[in-house]
Design a protein around this nucleic acid. Structure first.
Length: 816
RNA sequence: GCGAGAGUGGCGGAAUUGGCAGACGCGCUAGACUUAGGAUCUAGUACCUACGGGUGUGGGGGUUCAAGUCCCCCCUCUCGCACCA
């Protein structure tokens, strides 16, 4: 295929842009700033894959568009460089993570440059550099000092493959988010961030950000706010209390038994001698059951009786206390009051074990006899003492009021969200700046001693203990408080901690007096446009919001949401299948960049389909875009070689109309990330220009319209195909970069044509078309339509019962 | 199981305050140019047709002058949640 010299052009402009420092953003600028951000990559040993390109290429097109619209655009890039692959590589091959990581970053940087994006490489970030992780540690201490970081022993998620603990968010369907290994439980002392304190603020902020509805819903569900009451049950024959959380206090009179999670601390104490063996066997069994099995809704519920009884505070009734593994220790108080008549799970359980079922909510106010299934909807309270006859939804409040009066319960809000477990038993992460002193206990490393440097010399064994234990110089230290011998914390931080604040660092990546520059961030934050994968909805995107809200509460920043507008790119498939190494259907970008150039490659990705939906890659499809760019290249040449020299008006009208229409549609398309249709409109403009220069002799061609169309085309193309457009712009005689040029506007009046095609239907079927002037009166349109021979064929001898006119669009004649 | 989204030519995909279904591209067909062309330019391309038309947006019903678009039922796929008391 003959081709424009893309190789030469792309090389030429990459060098020129770098020489001119075209993309170094003036960070001190205060007006019309635009912060356009992509989720920074993990620099793996592999090259940039197509998913990176799909995230970065189209986003750069958007950023360039904003720049040409006159914004001072900041488009930074960096490396989320701490993480497991580098460490696993060290275990396998013996290359130190710091070496492999810096090598990978070098490679990545070269690849990123191939995209031809406006990255300001002078603002690059590397989360694994001490210059950066010093401030990650500072964040830890800040949270620690505010009581938002704490250490506690708890049953935690353990990935046997990664040999480390995981946060709840990082367990997907009972499997490790990274490697899909089944996660197990371990009792370990671990560090947590108190994100639960921010549940309410995280929910409130959702109303003020322009994010995909789906992502907001996922966060809301993850936080899982529910309103209800905490109710205190006595334990028969003891002074113990069992607190339960319920959203249905209106069903309190229907409680016929209680269920505790098997791991609940009270179980040991409550269990009677007669039941002990059975209870212990059950606890043992449920410990061995994996979480995936335990939380499967398919599985039949099991449980055992403890031999103890609880006292219902509203009616002093004695009800048996059971344990069952469908009750989760981690939600609410770890126990539930069971109301089998009005809860499906309790109903199933009661049926199986022959427990009593008492109806207390009736659909119509009268008892319904034996229930076939749990009735969970609103109804009228019955068998509920003084509350009988109340509508159950009103009863909720009344019952809580009564309990509060009696001191047996209170109104509460419960959340599904758990605190964020941030410690990891791995080497390649930011060390947690804490020292354990035999006398002083847990002591934070003083801020001025940061960073706590990762030791170089450690053993990589992958044994489930932090490799930092193998560095005596690191692990053994002195207490910052009393100076005695002490031990350092050897766990490192979850890499999601590093990525929770990187966007604050980009404008001032080398600042050594603070993590970020508060005054400067006033000009840049919140990020105006953030683009990245949807898989981070309840991980990175929730953590980053948490960090920003904490900083805002501490009055260290002046905004409380990090990302104003968020967009998730879709996933690229091949022949309808996800790309994966195991399938062997991965597209290697390099091959296509060699063959067609990076302009073609990035533009084809945008043309494949809707950006939010992803698209299906086709080795053949890409030639369409390559042809299109060639067609533009030739078009510009052809116009140069046969210069228009006339001013004809008739034929050029349509060209002029399309030029303005295209500018409008491309502008709107880019604003909304509709790259694919924007490119289609550009193609239409090119097609029309070809027709014009072929149908009209150069001597007749309207100079100003052709020149304007050509210039507009290049300007509109520039965000999509930056190298080619820059070259063509230069060819047109411009000295300055096309990216310093102004984005073309359009004239609405010129988009309107003199006549509009009107569709004529008879009984809803299209029978004829005609041209009419815009806004022609309805009567006239109908008269003209009735006069057309083809229409008369359908109306002759028939009665017109109704006429519908849609202005400037169609006429429908209903005949009988 | 629950929730959300999607299903349109041979292919990727356009078009939803209801108003010509299939923009744009791939592929295919024809013509032009050409020594040649897997380059380029132009035109055509949903299906059926006794050439009058008729039928078509996963399937079946409905509302309407008019339905890919709205309503009801069903099928398939994708994503999210999965005993959250």
């Amino acid at each position: 295929m003959s081709s424009y010299p893309f190789d030469e052009i792309e090389k030429k402009w990459k060098v020129k842009w770098e020489e001119q420092k075209l993309y170094q953003t003036d960070i001190q600028n205060t007006e019309k700033n635009f912060y356009c951000l992509v989720m920074f990559p993990y620099p793996s040993g592999d090259k940039l894959h197509i998913g990176h390109w799909y995230n970065f290429g189209p986003t750069d097109t958007f950023a360039r568009f904003k720049r040409m619209q006159g914004y001072n655009v900041f488009e930074p890039i960096g490396y989320d460089a701490f993480g497991l692959p580098a460490e696993n590589y060290a275990i396998k091959v013996g290359v130190h993570p710091s070496i492999s990581t810096s090598k990978n970053i070098e490679k990545f940087r070269e690849q990123l440059k191939a995209i031809g994006a406006m990255y300001d490489f002078s603002k690059e970030i590397n989360t694994s550099s001490p210059e950066y992780y010093k401030w990650t540690q500072w964040f830890f201490l800040m949270l620690y000092n505010k009581g938002l970081a704490y250490r506690k022993k708890a049953p935690v998620n353990w990935c046997p493959n990664c040999q480390t603990v995981l946060a709840n968010e990082q367990v997907i369907n009972g499997q490790c988010e990274r490697c899909d290994t089944d996660v197990t439980r371990k009792d370990l002392a671990q560090w947590f961030f108190k994100i639960t304190d921010y549940a309410e603020k995280l929910l409130e902020g959702h109303d003020r950000i322009d994010w995909p509805e789906k992502t907001i819903t996922m966060q809301k569900n993850w936080i899982g706010r529910s309103e209800g009451a905490e109710i205190s049950f006595g334990v028969d024959g003891t002074d113990d209390k069992i607190d339960v959380f319920t959203t249905r206090p209106d069903t309190l009179f229907g409680v016929t038994y209680m269920v505790l999670a098997p791991e609940h601390p009270l179980v040991e104490k409550l269990t009677s001698a007669d039941n002990r063996r059975e209870v212990e066997a059950y606890i043992d069994k449920s410990r061995k059951t994996s979480d995936i099995d335990r939380t499967s809704t398919e599985r039949e519920k099991t449980g055992v009786f403890t031999g103890a009884y609880a006292i219902n505070p509203v009616n002093d009734e004695k009800v048996p206390i059971w344990i069952a593994d469908y009750v989760l220790l981690t939600y609410g108080t770890g126990c539930v009051m069971a109301v089998p008549a009005h809860d499906e799970r309790d109903f199933e359980f009661a049926r199986k074990y022959g427990l009593h079922i008492r109806e207390v909510i009736s659909p119509n106010g009268s008892p319904g006899g034996e229930l076939e299934a749990a009735y969970v909807d609103v109804g009228v309270m019955i068998n509920s003492g003084q509350f009988d006859g109340l509508k159950s939804d009103e009863g909720i409040d009344k019952v809580i009021d009564y309990l509060e009066e009696k001191g047996a319960g209170k109104r509460t809000v419960n959340y599904r969200l758990r605190d964020w477990l941030i410690s990891r038993q791995r080497y390649w992460g930011a060390p947690i700046p804490i020292v354990f002193c035999p006398d002083c206990g847990e002591v934070p490393v003083p801020m001025e001693n940061l960073p706590v440097m990762l030791p170089e010399k450690v053993e990589f064994k992958g044994k489930g203990e932090s490799p930092l234990t193998t560095a005596p110089d690191f692990a053994n230290t002195t207490c910052p408080n009393c100076g005695k011998k002490a031990r350092r914390e050897v766990d490192t931080m979850d890499t999601f901690v590093c990525s929770s604040w990187y966007f604050l660092r980009y404008p001032t990546p080398h600042l050594d007096s603070a993590a970020f520059d508060r005054e400067n961030l006033k000009n840049w934050m919140p990020v105006h446009q953030y683009v990245g994968g949807a898989e981070h909805a309840v991980m990175h995107l929730l953590y980053a919001r948490f960090f920003v809200k904490v900083l805002h509460d501490l009055e260290l920043i002046d905004f409380d949401e990090p990302f104003q507008r968020l967009f998730h790119q879709g996933v690229i498939t091949r022949e309808g299948n996800k790309m994966s190494k195991s399938r062997g259907n991965v597209v290697n970008p390099d091959r296509f960049i060699d063959e067609y150039g990076s302009d073609t490659f990035r533009m084809y990705m945008m043309f494949m389909g809707n950006y939010a939906d992803g698209g299906d890659w086709s080795d053949e499809g890409i030639v369409g875009i390559h042809r299109f760019l060639n067609r533009i290249w030739r078009l510009v040449e052809m116009i140069d070689e046969n210069k228009p020299a006339g001013n004809e008006i008739e034929r050029s009208k349509e060209l002029e109309r399309i030029r303005h229409y295209t500018a409008k549609m491309v502008t709107q398309g880019l604003e909304n990330f509709h790259f694919n249709t924007a490119i289609s409109r550009l193609m239409e403009l090119v097609n029309e220009m070809y027709l014009y220069i072929q149908e009209v002799e150069p001597a007749e061609q309207n100079i100003s319209i052709v020149e304007d169309a050509r210039e507009t085309l290049i300007l509109l193309l520039a965000p999509f195909a930056p190298h080619l457009s820059e070259e063509l712009w230069e060819k047109l005689g411009h000295n300055d970069s096309v990216f310093n040029a102004q984005y073309p506007g359009y004239d609405e009046d010129k988009i309107k044509s003199d006549t509009i095609p009107i569709v004529i239907q008879v009984n809803g079927k299209v029978r004829e078309n005609m041209e009419a002037e815009p806004d022609t009166a309805d009567d006239e349109i109908v008269d003209r339509a009735l006069g057309l021979p083809k229409i008369q064929k359908y109306t002759n001898g028939k009665k017109i019962v109704k006429t519908i006119v849609v202005k400037n669009k169609l006429v429908n004649l209903v005949v009988r």
